Amino acid sequence: MDATNRHPGTAHLARYFTYDHLPANLQTVSRLFHDLAQDLLDLLPDGPELTVALRKLVEAKDCAVRAKLDSREV
C-alpha cells in the first residue's frame, strides 16, 4: 500500500493493511480491507476523519481475521 507523501498519521495506519505476510486463507479476508483502505486513500484528503476511518477499519480487519482463524478451529 503506497502512502508516501501522506500525513505521518495516515501513513502509520496504512501500513497495517498489508496482507502478503499472512497465510493464503487469511489473505482473502485481509485483502478486502486493504482494497477499501486503498480506495479511501485515493478518494480522501488527509485529516482527522480519515485517520479515524482508517483506525476503525484496522480494528474491523483484525476482528475479521480473528473470526477466520476461529472458523479453522471448528
Rank of each mutant, 00 (worst) to 15 (best):
F33A: 11
P8K: 14
T18M: 04
A64S: 14
V52D: 07
G47L: 09
D62K: 11
F17N: 02
H12M: 08
L26M: 09
A11P: 10
G47M: 09
E49N: 02
V52I: 10
A67L: 09
P23H: 03
L50G: 13
A53H: 06
T4Y: 09
L69W: 14
Y16L: 13
R66C: 05
F33C: 10
L40I: 00
D70F: 11
L69F: 13
P23I: 11
R15V: 09
D2W: 08
Q38E: 14
L69R: 13
T10R: 13
S30Y: 06
L69A: 04
R6H: 09
Q38W: 01
D46Q: 05
A64R: 02
F33T: 06
T4D: 12
R6C: 05
R31F: 10
G47P: 14
E49K: 04
V29H: 08
A11N: 10
L54F: 09
E73T: 14
R31S: 10
A11C: 08
K61H: 11
L44I: 08
A64Y: 00
E59I: 08
D35N: 12
A67V: 15
V29L: 12
R72P: 00
E59W: 13
L41H: 14
H12F: 10
P48D: 09
D39K: 06
Y19E: 15
D62A: 14
E59V: 13
V29P: 03
A11M: 10
V65N: 03
A24M: 01
V29Q: 07
H34W: 11
L36E: 15
K56D: 07
L57A: 15
M1A: 06
P8C: 01
L43W: 03
V74M: 00
D46K: 07
L32N: 11
V58Y: 15
E73N: 04
R72I: 06
V65S: 05
K56Q: 14
L26G: 04
D2I: 02
D35F: 04
R6Y: 05
V65H: 02
D39W: 05
K61S: 15
T28V: 10
L57C: 15
H7R: 07
D20T: 01
G47I: 03
L69D: 01
E49S: 06
R55D: 07
H34P: 00
